[in-house]
């Protein structure tokens, strides 16, 4: 009665299943090298790959090449990454190490914002940023992240608090005895020790902002400031003849940075995703 699934058939099943999962991606790769006429042929890879899809696609949006959109996206995300890591680690340090009135109250607020759906804030935040004159700049991305309340901010603070609580307190106690200020403890003791968690925060922050579309759609409206996502949207909207090969080529390129990050940081990934669920 004590039977389990045969290991070999399990192995074969998993192999087939993972192949099925990535099959659309393989097809994507193949289709990005096809001409429109070939698009409906059942072969995955074309016999005469149209490499020019990548070049024509790169320059398909009038006046701007995709180089411009990549630089814009990196400018946006670079600022967001930097501000997120500073602001979230500051708040996390306070929650994990410092003792002050209403600490529990503020922590409860943090947990509430963790679950708050953002739509309720969309309209008034837009009105606010419009009033500040921040529409069509990257400030609606930088400023919230610098204050730890950008997308994912609460989650990052929560994750960092959990991690910092695991660092032995004796380290900062003895530094206190030696007359070290809290800021120096944060900067010279905690930050280096929190590095693994900071890397995880950085990776998630990068990917979420790379994927984010709603915010960019709302706040950026001149092509000059467009990110890759908006450029792709513009691409599919302005083409009447639908050059599928070029579109698929450009969208494939747009996920390359995310994929590179993923392959270099797999370990952090698994830990980061699980952290919220298992420790919380």
């Amino acid at each position: 009665m004590n039977k389990t699934i045969n290991p070999l058939s399990r192995q074969i099943f998993i192999m087939a299943f993972s192949l099925l999962m990535v099959y659309p991606v393989l097809w994507w790769l193949g289709a990005s090298l096809k001409s429109n006429a070939e698009m409906s042929s059942p072969n995955i890879f074309s016999k005469n790959p149209v490499w020019s899809n990548y070049i024509d696609g790169w320059f398909a949006v009038p006046n701007y090449s995709f180089t411009h959109f990549y630089l814009n996206t990196f400018t946006l995300i670079g600022g967001v990454l930097f501000t997120t890591i500073i602001s979230c680690s500051l708040a996390a340090f306070a929650f994990a190490r410092l003792d002050f009135p209403l600490r529990k109250f503020w922590f409860a607020i943090l947990l509430v914002t963790l679950m708050l759906p953002g739509q309720v804030l969309t309209v008034p935040q837009y009105v606010l940023y419009n009033w500040f004159g921040w529409i069509n700049t990257y400030l609606p991305f930088y400023v919230p992240h610098a204050l730890g309340s950008g997308a994912g901010g609460s989650f990052f603070i929560f994750m960092l608090v959990q991690f910092m609580r695991g660092i032995p307190k004796e380290l900062d106690d003895s530094a206190r005895m030696d007359g070290c200020s809290w800021f120096r403890i944060y900067w010279y003791i905690m930050m280096p020790l929190t590095k693994p968690a900071l890397v995880t925060v950085g990776i998630f922050c990068f990917l979420w902002n790379w994927d984010d579309f709603f915010g960019q759609l709302l706040y950026i409206n001149s092509v000059d400031k467009y990110t890759i996502n908006l450029a792709l949207k513009l691409f599919i909207d302005t083409q009447s003849a639908m050059p599928w090969g070029q579109m698929l080529a450009m969208s494939l390129l747009s996920v390359v940075p995310a994929v590179i990050i993923f392959f270099f940081a797999q370990k952090h990934f698994v830990e980061g995703i699980s952290a919220g669920a298992l420790k919380g």
């Binding site: 708040a91 306070a94 929650f95 003792d99 002050f100 009135p101 204050l147 944060y186």
Partner: peptide, 18 residues
């Protein structure tokens, strides 16, 4: 409180954001 002032200084950006 052990560190009321430091606590609020570190938390200040986040509280302003909230």
């Amino acid at each position: 409180w052990e560190s009321p002032l430091a606590g609020y200084l570190f938390l200040m950006p986040w509280i302003v954001g909230i």
